[in-house]
Amino acid sequence: MLARRIIPCLDVRDGRVVKGQRFQAIKDVEDPAKLGKIYSEEGADELVFYDITASSEQREISLEFIEKVAATLQIPFCVGGGIKTIQDFGRILRKGADKVSINSAAILNPQLIKQAAEVYGSQCVVLSIDVKQDPDQSYRVYLNGGRQKTDLEAIAWAKKGVALGAGELVINSMDQDGMKNGYDIALLKQITDVVNVPVIASGGAGKLSHFKDVIQKANVDGILAASVFHYGEIKINDLKDYLSKQDITMRI
């Protein structure tokens, strides 16, 4: 059986991790490779590094961290944030990342998904989708880090992204993000019901049972979380032990 994946997400700015308070005492933990290694040793199945460096020039320098991460980790990792072109894909993969995640650029130019899948293979093309529910209950896609609403409906966009060649979806629920009330199971279930690629849930983790619920009720393949790990509220090995006891397949 394929194990469900637990994926910590780390924000990187100017090549340094924006760290949580759990790690205040650890020296130089802003080093993406060092923090990545800590998570890997705690049982993370994969890591996502999300580059939030403001300008594209600075990002070029910021992305130098990828080589160091690749040299340190022995688990797969994905890099996202600010990817606009097929050249960006190439640059990041050549530095040693296993996957590249795209969001706004795919909305503005859906052919980028297809192009990237053809050149580098679907397995490394991750489509990340920011979703917020409208007052009429429909799920809308947002771009530019959730600042701008689009006309796209989330489930339709997820299907289209997969048809174009995305090999994995990360669904970020903006309504749940930071609320610690659990994942948006209704949204995620609608997506896992209609696509045949792995779906990763993001946004809403607060306690152990939230992870169990989203796997059992929405059948997601992986779970991404940031703050509960960074602030030490949940330890990855404790989480995996707990899920394993709930009969969820985990790599322990």
């Binding site: 394929l2 194990a3 679907s122 397995q123 045949n196 690629v197 792995p198 393949d221 790599r251």
Partner: peptide
């Protein structure tokens, strides 16, 4: 029937 690619950790 399972998802393809076979992507992730398996035994």
């Amino acid at each position: 029937r399972l998802k393809v690619p076979h992507m992730g950790w398996n035994q």
